[in-house]
């Protein structure tokens, strides 16, 4: 099985922020969620992948091609969707096709109009008259009309209502049905990811905290709760993050450390729990 994305030791230095040694890979035919709190480096990573920023060090291979040297070839085979659309607001949907289509040698106009019909997009409407959900569908229609092998979506669900989010998830699952096409999407709305992502890369503070299968990620942690006096020093060292309150505490632990917390209340975690507890300042990394 080949990989749609391979990133190795990617670094990018800014004055106030640094993306440090990011490495992950996504096998062909699967969906990866890039998650992390705001300012963690998700969008920077995506921009580096699309060669919209210059990397300081490292290696990015997309569909087996180098992100800098082969960038034009990559873009022919890649669809990108951002949280705000990149079309001129006064263009009509029809004009969008004219302006975007010329950049792709394999643009399929028939496919585009089929997508418009499917998504109920009126070709004569202006971009600014479309709802957010519709604008997103327009970006997707463009991506699908040049037969993109890889779809990269930056915060695609932010600002969408639950109905539009659900539709997007369905569009994405349909997209990977043939097992050849892959999707990377960044989000902080993890309830979406809980459902369909196969892999997860969790970035925090410019570093990769976890990359791998989603189920292993969720299984790797537990939420422990107990009274304030039940927490001893040994336990405290095993907590990855904790919230203490007057009548007790709640903290995140690794599943392998479960024996240290024998008599306490232990629950499975959600992706949100992991993000919240590992992003709140100090992490006990032992």
């Amino acid at each position: 099985m080949s990989d749609a994305i391979v990133i190795n030791g990617l670094c990018k230095k800014f004055d106030t922020f640094e993306l440090d040694n990011i490495s992950f890979s996504l096998p062909e035919g699967y969906i990866m969620g890039l998650i992390g709190p705001n300012g963690a480096g998700k969008t920077t990573t995506i921009k580096l992948m699309l060669n919209m920023l210059k990397k300081s060090a490292g290696d990015i291979k997309i569909l087996g091609m180098d992100s800098v040297e082969d960038q034009n070839k990559i873009k022919e085979n890649l669809g990108a969707v951002f949280d705000s659309n990149y079309f001129v607001q006064d263009w009509t949907v029809k004009q969008v096709e004219k302006s975007i289509g010329i950049f792709y040698s394999n643009w399929n106009s028939e496919q585009f109009h089929e997508m418009l019909k499917k998504y109920k997009l009126d070709p004569n409407k202006k971009v600014k008259e479309l709802s957010r959900g519709m604008q997103m569908k327009l970006m997707l229609a463009c991506a699908f009309s040049h037969n993109a092998k890889l779809l990269i979506l930056d915060e695609p669900t932010s600002g969408l209502d639950p109905v539009a989010r659900d539709e997007l998830l369905d569009i994405i699952s349909e997209y990977i049905q043939d097992g050849k096409r892959s999707v990377l999407f960044s989000t902080h709305i993890t309830s979406d990811l809980d459902k369909i992502a196969d892999y997860i890369t969790f970035i925090n503070n410019g570093k990769v905290f976890y990359t791998g299968q989603k189920d292993d990620f969720i299984e790797g942690f537990r939420l422990v709760r107990g009274g304030s006096n039940e927490l001893n020093r040994e336990m405290e060292r095993k907590l990855l993050g904790v919230r203490k309150y007057s009548t007790g505490f709640e903290g995140l632990i690794r599943t392998e450390d479960i024996n240290y917390f024998n008599k306490l209340n232990i629950d499975p975690v959600s992706i949100d729990d992991i993000i919240i507890y590992t992003s709140k300042g100090d992490i006990n990394n032992e």
């Binding site: 035919g29 699967y30 369905d170 699952s173 349909e174 097992g179 459902k195 196969d198 299968q213 189920d215």
Partner: peptide, 16 residues
């Protein structure tokens, strides 16, 4: 992949 899509879950989960 069809089952994953229908149930709105990950392909790796149905694979497992």
């Amino acid at each position: 992949r069809q089952l994953a899509r229908d149930l709105k879950i990950s392909v790796l989960t149905t694979t497992r």
